[in-house]
Design a protein around this nucleic acid. Structure first.
Length: 272
DNA sequence: CCCGGAACCTGAAGGC
DNA sequence: TGCCTTCAGGTTCCGG
């Protein structure tokens, strides 16, 4: 499930293959893939364009084109971008094919068909709707404290709300809360200053470690060369229901928070 | 503004 | 073996 570390890895690893390349062909196999403009206009404005830069904002991949347009890609939960020689067959579940001027191709593969693409003149509109980047200096313990203040909602719901912090999803919220020893259902406003600081450090540690391990391949996440990441091998609680807590040996519990599977250690992360 | 739940998708896993 | 049900989750939309 692509979250910040997975999208960051895709950005880092796809950049050398596509920056400086010209797009020579665009094919879309799923009519809901393009959210705006129309699919017809998307193809017309993308074809022939020179790719000048690749960025990440939250879970969005942002590809700059020489025309000034921004090609925005969200992988949602099952999307991946694969770069292959032009002779390669499209993998199963390919929803779009982008041909490049050196004969290589980008396959957008997405079994669940949740992923979306957009073409925007202005990326600030998208960027403004997202909270701060948790790995940039603008994210501080005070910022996190303000996000948690005066809210009765579970702290986990605050962490995965993209309008408050950009890039954290279900897996890394669970990992950060475990590291900080905070129960996912704790009302946000009830966190002490010490807990806020622990959680702040945990968020940055968890995301940085996962980037170092090239993302987590729990289901359907692949790097641009088709290889999996290894961050999931280092998970402490996420998707490990019933396994022993690495800190105390207590079986990891699974509950549902906001409709999302939530894993935590009932001994290390107490609710009271 | 705040909050929470349904919808979108379909492969995988579990039940009988 | 095979049919059926349930689950997974990021974002958007909608109702309270």
């Amino acid at each position: 499930m692509p979250e910040l570390p997975e999208v960051e890895t895709v950005k880092n690893e796809i950049s050398p293959y596509i920056i400086g390349r010209r797009i020579t062909g665009v094919r879309v196999m799923w009519q809901k893939l393009v959210r705006e403009p129309t699919e017809e206009e998307f193809i017309r404005r993308l074809a022939g364009q020179l790719i000048t830069n690749v960025e990440r904002r939250g879970k969005y991949l942002v590809i700059s084109l020489a025309s000034g347009d921004y090609w925005i890609i969200h992988l949602k939960m099952s999307g991946s971008l694969l770069v292959a020689p032009g002779t390669a067959e499209p993998p199963k579940y390919t929803q779009a094919i982008i041909d490049l001027d050196n004969g290589s191709r980008i396959f957008f593969r997405d079994p669940r068909k949740f992923g979306r693409m957009l073409l925007l003149k202005d990326r600030d509109r998208l960027f403004r709707a997202l909270g701060p980047e948790p790995l940039l200096p603008g994210f501080t313990p005070d910022v996190l404290a303000r996000l948690a203040a005066d809210r009765d909602t579970p702290i986990k719901a605050v962490l995965i709300d993209q309008a408050r912090i950009a890039g954290i999803g279900n897996m890394y919220a669970d990992e950060a809360l475990w590291e900080a020893r905070i129960h996912p259902l704790r009302p946000a406003r009830s966190l002490t200053r010490g807990e806020i600081i622990r959680l702040y450090d945990a968020i940055r540690n968890v995301l940085t470690d996962a980037i170092r391990h090239k993302g987590a391949s729990i289901v359907n996440y692949y790097r641009p060369d088709g290889s999996p990441g290894t961050a999931h091998d280092h998970f402490h609680v996420a998707h490990r229901g019933g396994a022993a807590c690495p800190r105390c040996g207590t079986p990891i519990q699974r509950i549902v928070v906001r409709g999302r599977g939530t894993y935590f250690c009932p001994r290390c992360q107490v609710l009271s």
